[in-house]
């Protein structure tokens, strides 16, 4: 082995390739973010790169687009809606999944294998498969063999509909991942708690839940970003009434709709929508990646 010989990847050319890749991945954001700080008429009049080249950008940069989109266009309301959708949509499925995972990992009961197979089997169902009947269920209720299980509720456009839609879609994976995680915990700890007379509920809250924080955090980060960034479910269940929009559907409406060439609003709106995911991503990167890799097996 001759160590003196420079490896090909240490050569400037491969570094150059990497830098070029990084730049080309950054380039799409750059023009977009720059345009979000430019007045609407300049965005249309001069391209963003020319405005940088001739220095116009530095004199005209403004936050006016942001205040316009947040307050005049009411993106702030959509922003609040997004939180009201995504926080419970993260907590509800995780709680239910954690309880179920505890039972799968630590309680012996009849039909455990079948129940687990059912839960895991649900992972192959793409959400498109249940979207429309679920929407009808939230609106008109569910009737099974002539017996109304759920009455007519008219839940469309309420937060509850979105929470439980996301709960259904997120549960199989959450249960699967958390069960895996809890199976890794020492069984003896749980058994000794049982001998000491602790109930399942106490063992769950005082012992298993604290020990599973890492697994829960991984899935929670993943689920939160998934729900916050989701457009399809929000669009279907919350609808397009202005007061019901979430950030993604609001930005989608700006981008697709008849706003003509309101690129100063499209850019600033989209940039605002990206702030929360990026904060979550950079502060919880490790958890997010772990949750994402776990999620690679979902249907």
């Amino acid at each position: 082995m001759n160590l003196e010989k420079q490896k090909w990847y240490d050569k400037p050319v491969s570094k150059f390739i990497l830098i070029m890749i990084a730049l080309s991945w950054m380039l799409p954001y750059i023009g977009f973010v720059i345009s979000s700080f430019r007045p609407g008429d300049s965005v249309k009049r001069v391209s963003w790169w020319s405005s940088i080249a001739n220095g116009e950008f530095f004199s005209e940069a403004t936050l006016a687009n942001y205040s316009e989109i947040l307050f005049a266009e009411n993106l702030s309301r959509s922003f609040l809606n997004s939180f009201a959708v995504s926080i419970p949509s993260t907590i509800i499925p995780i709680t239910i999944a954690a309880f179920a995972a505890y039972a799968f990992a630590f309680i012996d009961f009849k039909g455990k294998e079948i129940a687990f197979l059912f839960v895991v089997g649900m992972m192959i169902i793409p959400l498109q498969m249940s979207l429309i009947p679920l929407l009808k269920l939230m609106k008109g209720g569910a009737i099974l063999f002539g017996i109304p299980i759920i009455p007519e509720l008219n839940l469309n456009g309420t937060f509850v509909a979105v929470w439980f839609a996301h709960t259904g879609f997120g549960l199989p994976l959450a249960t699967f991942l958390l069960r895996d995680f809890m199976m890794g915990l020492p069984r003896s700890v749980v058994e000794s708690a049982k001998i000491d007379g602790a109930s399942h509920l106490v063992t769950f809250f005082k012992l298993v839940l604290p020990l599973s924080v890492a697994g829960i955090a991984a899935f929670a980060t993943f689920q939160f970003l998934w729900v916050y960034n989701d457009f399809l479910v929000a669009n279907v269940f919350m609808g397009i009434k202005p007061e019901n929009l979430v950030v993604t559907s609001h930005v989608a409406q700006l981008t697709v709709g008849n706003y003509g060439e309101a690129w100063h609003l499209r850019t600033s709106g989209a940039v605002i929508s990206m702030v929360v995911p990026l904060i979550v991503f950079f502060s919880l990167q490790r958890f997010f990646v772990r949750g994402l890799i776990g999620g690679a097996v979902k249907g």
């Binding site: 009961f109 059912f118 839960v119 649900m122 249940s130 549960l171």
Partner: peptide, 28 residues
């Protein structure tokens, strides 16, 4: 109580999956 507790831990998950995922998929 042991059997009931198992039902309590696992029940809501099965209930929600059946109602919000399985039943709609069959309907589709």
């Amino acid at each position: 109580q042991e059997g009931l507790f198992a039902g309590m831990f696992i029940g809501p998950a099965l209930f929600m999956l059946s109602l919000f995922l399985f039943y709609p998929a069959i309907r589709t």
